[in-house]
Design a binder for these strands. Structure first.
Lengths: 300, 300
DNA sequence: TTTATTGTATTGAATTATTAAAAACCATTG
DNA sequence: CAATGGTTTTTAATAATTCAATACAATAAA
């Protein structure tokens, strides 16, 4: 009928745990102290104390608070389990779009999404509002939301944007000091690439993971919140598209490994021009792949 | 107690207007037709018809709908006026932050903002959710929102990101075909710059407008929804910061004009390297100015 | 007094409930 | 059977409700 009292329930159990550490008949600390312990406001603490008094766990009169008995398991409050459903909403949402190939210009029903993802409606609305900043969805005049991507133009613009960010990252990377952890990650990545190349005939689908790690390593050099925010979306989209598009996967991945290695070589030689050229080449291939995987469904 | 019936009221008035164009005793078209006319669903149309029947404007029996008399002004429904308050919320919000120098790590109260900006709470929540994508605000664990920017690191990262986007735009611009409208805008911009340079001693604060137009012209060459979305925020922030920071404004603006002209020259000469260098120089100055304007309040 | 603590009131935000509107579905008429 | 109207179901906007945080006043301890 109103907001949940999860906070109270959690705090109550945490305070029980704390009381268990106290000796029998011990004095219970001040409300504000308890608030710090349970990381909640005094209001919640008082509600907890109130309940503890009811349950004959403590005697409470003004600032005189005494523990009457040690708390046991039956004192604990039950938690309505709906663990972290809204945590990885973004991940799951994009996954859903790409996995089920949800077409562009589909109207999204907040109510339906809310049911399917097990997330309250208002959270979904906020989430969609956030996505609209990336031009992936938009508000309809009659109310409600509409999925804009994945059109061809969306993919093109996303690829171009990715290229801009990644080339910038490369420029930063060649300038990175020798003791930057990035170089270590790069060497690891090279080894992993070479190892996969050996057994590419059988394990070619392992490339997807390598690819993500590789690009993340490069972008890790750039410490920029705007870039990071976009990178999350970009990598997710490219990642899943590679997973779903099964055409010529083996050849494609083999070629991509070579392209990656070329970039690594140029980076380690501190040759910016060569690294940029290699990256351009690689991202061009990427873009082509992404576009060809859209060819069939996208008529917009 | 629930959603407003603005849609119904607007539709009713629009249908009155439509009925006024009909002759006396005319047949009123089908519900779905009326829905198209007023751009609403049949549900709303039926509510309108129902009311029109009550007011003895029409006779309504199944598909037999007849206009009984011409509608007059007293038939119209009053509109609770709250015209387009939420339209330029973004503009007004950022303006507020910069104008009043709202410090970083300020907790934002949705209720208060809602009152001050005259926008329903849920719209504000969605808006803030959108801004959080740009790292300008974030959710607090205890609920509510917190303003993150304008810290020094935010300004640095924003400037860097702007540089990345703008250099990319320059690269695109030199490649633009001769008949691209951009070249016209650039020439206009050059003329305006030269004109302002003549009377810089008195009209130096006019530069802010010029600056915005200049950068918008350059970025107009890049057709990319992600870039466009960011550019909106970036230009707004830089724009206002220039407005508020009054130190050495005349000298600063004079120098900036020269820098702009250098970029224009290089662009029109189709000299990419020179254009990039000039832009780098200009954006570096920009960044320095932005940072020095923060010097005083920012201790984070 | 001064300071720490509690008691109380006010304000804010998460979440539900309610109503307007849209959409889907079925019935009927010409 | 096609177009239109009646009815039901579903969705989304928004206010109301309740939990929680915070501000402030009162009081006891130092």
């Amino acid at each position: 009928m109103a907001r949940s009292d999860t906070r109270f329930r959690e705090a109550y159990n945490r305070l029980l745990d704390y009381c268990a550490t106290l000796g029998p008949d011990a004095a219970v600390p001040a409300e504000s102290k308890l608030g710090e312990i349970a990381n909640v406001s005094r209001t919640v603490v008082r509600r907890c104390l109130s309940r503890m008094e009811d349950k004959a766990l403590i005697r409470w009169d003004g600032r005189e608070k005494r523990l009457l008995r040690a708390p046991n398991d039956r004192d604990r409050m039950a938690q309505p389990d709906q663990a972290g459903a809204s945590d990885d909403l973004e991940q799951r949402f994009l996954e859903w779009i790409l996995k089920f190939d949800v077409p562009a210009n589909t109207t999204l029903s907040v109510a339906e999404l809310s049911r399917n993802f097990g997330v309250p409606q208002h959270e979904l609305k906020e989430f969609l509002a956030g996505l609209s900043r990336f031009g992936l969805v938009t508000r309809r005049k009659q109310g409600g939301w509409m999925l804009l991507g994945f059109t061809r133009s969306f993919a093109v613009e996303l690829s171009d944007f990715r290229t801009v960010l990644e080339l910038n990252a490369i420029s930063h990377a060649v300038e990175a000091p020798v003791d930057h952890p990035f170089w270590g990650r790069l060497e690891e990545s090279r080894a992993a690439h070479l190892a996969l190349l050996e057994r590419i005939d059988t394990d070619f689908h392992e490339f997807s993971k390598l690819d993500e790690a590789f690009h993340m390593a490069i972008n890790s050099v750039v410490k920029n919140r705007f870039v990071a925010e976009f990178q999350k979306v970009i990598s997710l989209i490219f990642h899943y598209h590679y997973l779903w598009d099964k055409t010529h996967e083996k050849i494609r991945n083999g070629a991509a490994i070579e392209e990656h290695l070329a970039i690594i070589d140029a980076l380690e030689a501190r040759d910016e021009a060569a690294a940029l050229a290699a990256t351009r080449r690689h991202l061009k291939t990427s873009k082509t792949t992404l576009l060809s995987s859209l060819r069939y469904h996208d008529l917009v």
